[in-house]
Design a binder for these strands. Structure first.
Length: 169
DNA sequence: GCCAACGTTGGC
DNA sequence: GCCAACGTTGGC
């Protein structure tokens, strides 16, 4: 079975962690921890691979929308925050032998000539079926098809190809 | 601040 | 296993 993927949309509230913060981070990389939703967990753990493209989306923002381009920079690891009693993401039910929650590293790769607002995304025919735009969707990580990826890049004023270092089929 | 939509929890 | 109550997400 085609595992799909290769491209993802990941949501972050800019007041918590913005694309600009990722751009300024060491190696433009951060561990995307704190995901506590089982569907998103399964995507992180089972589907995401280093080099996959990431649309970095700002939720609870003004306006909400895609703020930058990133890539998956590591395979999934056990999310360390689940073992840290001081963390708001601590999970007493999880064990190191059988971790419940996972995280991947994410690296910023391209700034956008123009951010792409949610309103613009909703107005774009080529994004009508995008998982992140479906009614009621609250997943912090969701799949993006290759055609959606390139539609979005064009809207953002980026030329092909994808992220530096991305492995094209 | 409001509230629709969804996920999780827990009583039964 | 059902489902009501509750908490969270996230656009507006």
């Amino acid at each position: 079975m085609d595992r799909g993927g290769r491209y993802w949309l990941m949501k972050s509230e800019p007041e918590v962690f913005s694309f600009e913060a990722l751009w300024k981070a060491k190696n433009r990389t951060t561990l995307w921890d704190g995901v506590r939703n089982y569907k998103a967990r399964s995507l992180l753990r089972d589907e995401m691979r280093p080099g996959d493209g990431v649309l970095f989306y700002h939720s609870n923002a003004d306006p909400p929308g895609v703020a930058g381009i990133a890539e998956v920079a590591s395979a999934a690891v056990a999310d360390p925050t689940q073992f840290d009693p001081a963390s708001e993401h601590f999970d007493a039910e999880s064990s190191r032998d059988d971790p419940r929650w996972f995280a991947v590293e994410v690296r910023a790769t391209e700034r956008l000539a123009r951010p792409v607002s949610l309103a613009a995304m909703r107005a774009e025919e080529g994004l009508k079926e995008m998982v992140a735009l479906q009614r009621g969707n609250r997943l912090s990580v969701s799949p993006v098809t290759e055609s959606e990826w390139f539609v979005l890049r064009a809207m953002a004023g980026l030329s092909e190809p994808g992220p530096v270092g991305s492995r094209r089929p």
